[in-house]
Simulated scan of single mutants.
Amino acid sequence: MKVKQSRIKWRWGVENIKNRSIRAYLLLESLITLALLSVLVGTVLTEITRSRTQENIENQQIEALSVARMAVDSQMSSLSLNGATIKVVHSPTKIFISNHGEELLELERED
């Protein structure tokens, strides 16, 4: 009987080690999956933020060009509208258009 008991105890010990090993592998896989998911989510959020920033810059440029067109069409030397401050400078051959001191356009006149 002692031999049977020792085999049974040994067998239970092996099963216990196997269960612990399986749990450890599951925990390791879970941690790796969580790390990968975190990296993917971080990358997606970073790209979304970058895309929105780029879109805001482009919208501001579009707005500035629209205001500049209004200023040129109405022959005004300066116009402030929707956050854009447009100044139009006429020279004999060119028209310079700037927004907040930065040059937007330089147009040549056709006469």
Results as ranks from 00 to 15, higher is better:
residue 3 V to E: 13
residue 6 S to W: 07
residue 9 K to I: 03
residue 9 K to G: 05
residue 14 V to Q: 13
residue 14 V to N: 07
residue 14 V to P: 02
residue 15 E to F: 05
residue 18 K to M: 09
residue 20 R to H: 09
residue 23 R to T: 07
residue 23 R to H: 01
residue 25 Y to V: 02
residue 26 L to Q: 05
residue 29 E to F: 09
residue 33 T to G: 15
residue 33 T to C: 07
residue 36 L to S: 12
residue 40 L to I: 05
residue 40 L to Y: 03
residue 43 T to V: 06
residue 43 T to H: 10
residue 45 L to Y: 10
residue 46 T to R: 12
residue 47 E to R: 15
residue 48 I to H: 09
residue 49 T to N: 11
residue 50 R to N: 12
residue 53 T to L: 10
residue 56 N to C: 01
residue 56 N to P: 02
residue 58 E to P: 00
residue 58 E to A: 13
residue 59 N to F: 06
residue 63 E to Q: 08
residue 64 A to N: 05
residue 65 L to S: 12
residue 65 L to M: 07
residue 70 M to Y: 05
residue 70 M to G: 04
residue 73 D to K: 03
residue 75 Q to A: 08
residue 75 Q to W: 04
residue 79 L to P: 11
residue 79 L to A: 06
residue 81 L to T: 04
residue 81 L to P: 00
residue 85 T to K: 12
residue 88 V to A: 01
residue 90 H to V: 01
residue 91 S to F: 10
residue 91 S to G: 11
residue 92 P to Q: 15
residue 97 I to P: 01
residue 98 S to K: 11
residue 99 N to G: 03
residue 99 N to C: 15
residue 100 H to N: 15
residue 100 H to T: 03
residue 101 G to P: 08
residue 101 G to A: 11
residue 102 E to N: 13
residue 103 E to N: 13
residue 105 L to V: 01
residue 106 E to G: 00
residue 106 E to H: 00
residue 107 L to G: 07
residue 108 E to H: 10
residue 109 R to Y: 04
residue 110 E to D: 09
